[in-house]
Design a binder for these strands. Structure first.
Lengths: 344, 344
DNA sequence: TTCTCTACTGTGAACGCTCACAGACAGCAT
DNA sequence: ATGCTGTCTGTGAGCGTTCACAGTAGAGAA
C-alpha cells in the first residue's frame, strides 16, 4: 500500500468515479454535467458541481480523447524561415493572440516549427495521425506543399494570409492588402504628389501582389500613367528597401513620393533618401505598410497602414474552431487603417 | 457500413493491433519494439518495423498517456507582462530554441500565457492535473507564486533565470550576469575610463541585482570608490535609459563611461548623450547588455554582453527532461561573452 | 536427465472517459 | 387502463495502449 502524498510525489488525481461517488450519482451523470449539462436535473447538476469543487476534479483529457477521437488541441504551424518570423513583431502578436483566443475555449496550442525536411515529415505525421484537431498555418511561401498535404488528409486548416496555388478549399484570414495600398496611394496623391514610386514586396506572395495591384488601381483611377521605372521590388528586408530607393532615385530623380510595401523596407528607403540629401516629407513623402514598431521608431515617423493583427488572430481561431465543428472552409478579409505620421 | 475514405473524411488510423496482425506477432511485441526494442528478437523487430512502414502506423499518444500517466508533452509558461516579452528578441530565440530542442525528443510544446488571474488559475489546474509532464517557466517577477505552487504540487519545473525567494529546490538555467557585468566594466576601465556610471535593471530581478553586483566588484578590485550618484536604475525600457542618462549627466558631468544593463536602455542612453552634445565613444563610452538587434541597429553600434540564448534554451530542455526522468533539480549557469563594437 | 537461467512472446487486465442503450418515472392524451 | 412522449438516470462496453504475468524454448550446468 502506497500513501503517495506530500511534497515531491504527485497524488493520484480524482477520477470521474470519485466525483460520482461523492455526489451520489453515476458516472454517466457526471459526464453529462461536464459536457453541457443536457438531460440533467438541476439537483443532480448542483450536487455534481459541488463534488467537483470539493474533490478538485479535472477531466483527464487523454481518456476523453481516446474515446471521442478528438484531441481538443490545435497546432500552430510555422513553416520556412523561422528567424524572419520570430523577429517580426506582427508574428508575435499573432501567436499571442491565437494562444489567448484558444485559451478562452480551453483549447491548448501546440507550437510546431517545420524548418528542416525531417521536421516537416515528423510534424505532418503527427498532425495527420490526429494528435491535433486542426492547424493554424503561417507560411511565407503560400502554396506551401504542407498545406496541400494537410488539406488532402482532411485536417481542418486556416492560413494566415491568402494562400496561392491551392484550390479554394482552404480557409484563410487576411488583411485587405489591396485596399490598404489604395488608401495609402490615395493619401499620397491627396497631398499633391504626382510622381509616386513604389517598392513592392516579393511578387510570389499574395501580399506583394495585392499591394502592387492597389497602387496600380489608384494611379489608373487618378489618370496617372503607370511607369515601370518607378516600380522596384524588395523582399521586405531593410536592406532591400535601401537598395530599392537608390534604384528609384537613379531612374527617376523627380520622384516626390514612395509607397513602400513594408515598414522595415521603408526604414531603408528613409536611409537612402537621407543619404541622397532629400528631405522627408518636404521633397519626398514616404508611406509604409504594417504599422510595426519600426514605423514609430523611424525618423521621421512613418505614415503607414495598420493591419488588424489582433482581429486576424481571433478570426483565425474562430474560423478554425467552426471548421473543426463541421462547418465549411471560409475566407475572411479584414479592413486596414491608414495611420498618418510625419513622413507624409 | 461506412467506407470513410477519400478527401474530406479522415480514415480511421491503423492501431497497434493492425500492425501486430500485419507483422504476425502480438500487441505486446509491437509495443516493445515501439518502446526501445528490449527483449525482442531481431527477426520480430524487423517484421514489426516493416509493418509499421507499410501501414503508416503512428502511436496514439492519448491511449499511451492514459496508461502511463505521462503526457509526453511540456508546457512553456509565460507569466505577467506578455507584451514586453513578445517584443523581446531574446525571448523569441528562447521560445524557438525550446521548441526545437523538445522536438528533437519528440515532445510537443504547449504554449501557455498566464496574464490574468483567471488564466493563472486555469493553467495551474491544467498543469497540476498532469496534462503536461513538466514546465519551462519564464517569469519576470521571479519568486512568482505560480512557481511555488507548481513546485509544491511536485511538477518538474525549470526557470529561465535565477528565481529569488523560492527555496533551492527549483531548477534554473541562467547566464552569468555578474561575470558579464564584470567583463564589461573591466573593459571600460581598460580603456582608461575612470568615472563609470551605471544604469541598472529593475532591482527586484536577479538580473538587475547581479549586474550591479558585478559592477561594484570590479570597481572595488580596481580601487575606485563606489559613488551612489552615478548609479541610477531603470526598467529595461528605452525611455528609462534616456531618463537615467539625463540624471547621470546632471549629477556627474564628468562622466566618461556608462555601463547600461540592457541594450534597449543603452539606446536611450545614446539618445540622451547625443542631445547633451557628448560624443560616443570619444567623450563617453557606453556598454550595453544582451547583444540584441538593438545593439547593431544603434549608432554608434553598441559594445555589449552576449547571453548564450541558444544554449540557455537547450539546457533548459535538457534539465527539464532529466528531472522528468527522475533526476534532482539542478542549476546551470552559462558563460557570457563580451562583444566589442563602436560605442567603447 | 533435470534443473536453472536467459531471451523472448502472448494474454488479460487495467487506465478514465464517453457513448449507446435500456429502464424508470412523470405527465398527458387516448 | 393503455399508450405515448419527454426527461432523467444508471450500466456495460470499448477507445488503443502499456504493464504484469505466465508461459515457451533453448542453452548451459549439475
Amino acid at each position: 500500500m502506497t500513501m503517495n502524498h506530500g511534497a515531491g510525489g504527485r497524488r493520484r488525481p480524482p477520477t470521474i468515479h470519485d466525483v460520482a461517488r461523492e455526489a451520489g450519482v453515476s458516472r454517466g451523470t457526471v459526464s453529462r454535467v461536464l459536457n453541457g449539462g443536457h438531460y440533467v436535473s438541476p439537483t443532480a447538476a448542483e450536487a455534481v458541481n459541488a463534488a467537483i469543487r470539493r474533490t478538485g476534479y479535472v477531466v483527464n483529457r487523454h481518456a476523453r480523447s481516446l474515446i471521442t477521437g478528438r484531441s481538443d488541441s490545435v497546432g500552430f504551424l510555422l513553416t520556412e524561415p523561422q528567424e524572419r518570423f520570430f523577429e517580426d513583431p506582427n508574428f508575435n502578436v499573432l501567436l499571442r493572440g491565437c494562444t489567448q483566443a484558444l485559451a478562452a475555449h480551453d483549447v491548448p496550442l501546440l507550437l510546431m516549427l517545420a524548418g528542416t525536411e525531417d521536421e516537416r515529415r515528423r510534424i505532418t505525421r503527427y498532425i495527420t495521425a490526429g494528435h491535433v484537431d486542426g492547424v493554424l498555418l503561417v507560411s511565407s511561401h503560400s502554396g506551401d506543399p504542407i498545406a496541400t498535404e494537410l488539406r488532402e488528409a482532411g485536417v481542418p486548416l486556416v492560413a494566415c494570409g491568402k494562400p496561392i496555388g491551392i484550390g479554394s478549399k482552404v480557409s484563410y484570414v487576411a488583411a485587405d492588402d489591396r485596399d490598404g495600398a489604395r488608401d495609402m496611394v490615395r493619401h499620397l496623391l491627396a497631398q499633391g504628389r504626382r510622381r509616386v514610386g513604389v517598392v513592392t514586396g516579393p511578387l510570389d506572395t499574395p501580399g506583394g501582389v495585392e499591394r502592387l495591384a492597389g497602387y496600380r488601381e489608384v494611379l489608373a483611377e487618378a489618370g496617372v500613367a503607370y511607369d515601370e521605372r518607378i516600380v522596384v521590388s524588395g523582399d521586405y528586408s531593410r536592406a532591400s528597401g535601401e537598395a530599392g530607393a537608390e534604384r528609384l532615385l537613379a531612374q527617376a530623380p523627380d520622384l516626390d513620393a514612395v509607397f513602400v510595401a513594408s515598414d522595415l523596407m521603408a526604414q531603408g528607403v528613409l536611409t537612402a533618401l537621407h543619404r541622397a540629401g532629400r528631405r522627408v516629407p518636404e521633397d519626398v513623402a514616404v508611406g509604409g505598410f504594417d504599422d510595426s514598431p519600426a514605423a514609430t521608431a523611424a525618423s521621421p515617423s512613418l505614415t503607414t497602414i495598420r493591419q488588424p493583427w489582433d482581429r486576424i488572430s481571433s478570426e483565425m481561431v474562430r474560423v478554425l474552431l467552426a471548421q473543426i465543428g463541421g462547418e465549411d472552409p471560409a475566407a475572411v478579409i479584414l479592413p486596414t487603417e491608414l495611420v498618418k505620421r510625419e513622413s507624409t
